[in-house]
Design a protein around this nucleic acid. Structure first.
Lengths: 336, 336
DNA sequence: AAAACCCACTTAATCGTTTTCGTGTTTTTA
DNA sequence: TAAAAACACGAAAACGATTAAGTGGGTTTT
């Protein structure tokens, strides 16, 4: 409402003086500055982001592309948590965050890049998307600073959860508890899945645990139904595993259903483990053995990196930041 | 990057003509329009939201205030789902959504209203906050169109989940299943809690179910620990209930822990019910008896109402939109 | 005492649009 | 055929800020 013009008139100075006073330039007298600040407060002046953006080419707003083929990242526990801490960190540094429109069906819509330019985002964070999407590619290749989460574009900064170490720790823990017949219902193909899966194989090999092919199967992430069915199949094998790993904690609950249906108990008759460390999983009995991903750190680092990339592009190096998770032992893996 | 100026030079017309052509004004020749549109496409022109906002006083961006004392609404399943559908609807109508900065500790931060003016939000949606906060009050009282979720400010539009009906349906179902000793661990005081609680009492009264005071206790929403302890207390009563209602599905899991700890089975030895209808609750066995809140509808209606308020303020009436939930019978309430 | 500086401002251009008035040309009307 | 109307477009101001360059006056330098 109130603009610098109003202040300038009230103080009998030029608009330029007001601007400089408010931005604390050195070529304005102390008492004038004080008077201007005073009046600004009185009439409830606040700058206008649009006008400022127009002149300075900086919006202090970050674009967020958190989208899945099936659903937005918002309802996805892991990503919601990452986004939440991203938001906190960004807000502390006075950046606002805006979602990049991902409604692909609207006629006349803009591509991700077009939208980002339209809104003049200072930077963009990408997660949870189909990284093969040409529009994502286009956005990443643009001159806009970008940080990706859980995916690496060769010359761009990324923040990654350490799925290799997470899976290794998990398998090693399970091995230590005495298990030698470990099955893994892994998630659908993606960078994350590949990391976990190869780490699973590698760790088993190191431990001299043989993994029959029928112990490995695929299910969508967060799909209790699929996990349920795959679990039934695994339990029906003539040589069933003693422990089953799931794509994530949520899917795990589908597995538990199948296990209980057979009258088996956890961990007495069969052991299970999830991934993520969601609240429910680590609070509900039997507490799930799982890997708690450090979402707070992931989101925070992503925001810090992105803002650093924006504010000091010369001195900020492109890097992949790997954030370790922490194994939560819980009680769903039995000692045998 | 490319501006109208570039187009105007390429086409040999004035900037004004370009603007009018692109906005399809009637006083520009058809062939000129076509030529301009063509060139615009070729050089990859897209408008600049900041400049446009400056002139038109419309940003096509909506502010979102989804915040809790403890945590952001993002990690709150119910609100994340509401926000998700709000976002979808808004995006379809080409509005973008930006979070209103709720980091209250940053020095020099703006109030919610100041921030909203700074960003020139066309409208604002508020949910999940402490509605007594003077800053919220200030925002609501301002001239910015606003829609609240699950809370009513007397002269403002709101979208509400029908907690009265939801609770009534739930209690009636439980009654129909034969229960007469129903306990309710309700959430912390709030508009939602009051609706549910009074509906609980009222329905019980109508059904001639007496509710001893020790059957009613309070626990924070989504707090498994508190639910656990309150459940233990209830189970320890000399005249324990046959069915326990929880603040929400998540808290319910804390109750289940306490129940299992006593060696009791659900629903054979005790019945329970949640609220919300989260994915996990309605998929995990025993499937929880709960009320599925129609988050899709809530968020969608909120967006529609807000945009309508923005685009046709004269003809849009202020109203409270009540969205009904749907009882999910599940199998956690036994027939006795 | 003239040259050189500082200080504390102001002027004016600019960012990328939109929009109100023109203005010159063509077409229609009387 | 002259006046009126319609058409197609341009000039310029405005939105609210930032900033380079300029301007007087007082102080300092030599």
């Amino acid at each position: 409402m109130a603009s610098m013009k109003d202040i300038s008139m009230a103080c009998g100075v030029s608009i330029a003086t007001v601007s400089k006073a408010l931005n604390n330039h050195k070529d304005i007298g102390e008492e004038t500055k004080e008077r201007i600040r005073q009046v600004a407060k009185e009439i409830g002046y606040f700058p206008d982001s649009a006008a400022k953006a127009l002149k300075t080419n900086r919006t202090y707003s970050l674009g967020v592309l958190f989208v899945d083929d099936s659903q937005s990242g918002l309802t996805h526990d892991y990503f919601a948590n990452v986004l939440d801490s991203f938001k906190r960190t960004a807000e502390q540094k006075s950046y606002d965050i805006t979602f990049i429109n991902c409604c692909k069906t609207r006629p006349g819509r803009m591509s991700y890049l077009e939208h980002s330019r339209y809104r003049r985002f200072d930077g963009v964070v990408i997660a949870c998307v189909n990284f093969n999407d040409p529009e994502v590619e286009e956005l990443v290749r643009s001159s806009i600073p970008v940080v990706t989460i859980d995916y690496i574009f060769n010359d761009k900064s990324a923040v990654l959860s350490d799925n290799v170490k997470g899976m290794r720790d998990l398998v090693q823990y399970i091995y230590k508890m005495g298990h030698r017949k470990i099955a893994y219902i892994h998630g659908a193909d993606s960078a994350v899945t590949r990391s976990r899966l190869s780490s699973f194989y590698k760790t088993c090999e190191e431990l001299n645990v043989t993994v029959p092919p029928e112990y490995i199967c695929e299910a969508q992430y967060r799909d209790t139904q699929e996990a349920y069915h795959k679990t039934k199949e695994l339990l029906g094998l003539k040589n069933p595993p003693t422990c089953i790993l799931y794509p994530d904690d949520f899917a795990c609950f589908g597995g538990i259903n199948a296990i209980h249906e057979r009258g088996m108990r956890i961990p007495d008759d069969i052991s299970i483990a999830g991934y993520d460390g969601t609240q429910i999983a680590i609070n509900y009995e039997p507490k799930l053995t799982t890997v708690i991903q450090d979402t707070r750190c992931l989101g925070g680092k992503a925001a810090e990196k992105l803002i650093s990339l924006i504010e000091k592009p010369k001195t900020t190096l492109t890097e992949q930041i790997v954030v370790e998770g922490k194994i939560f032992e819980g009680s769903s893996v039995a000692r045998i």
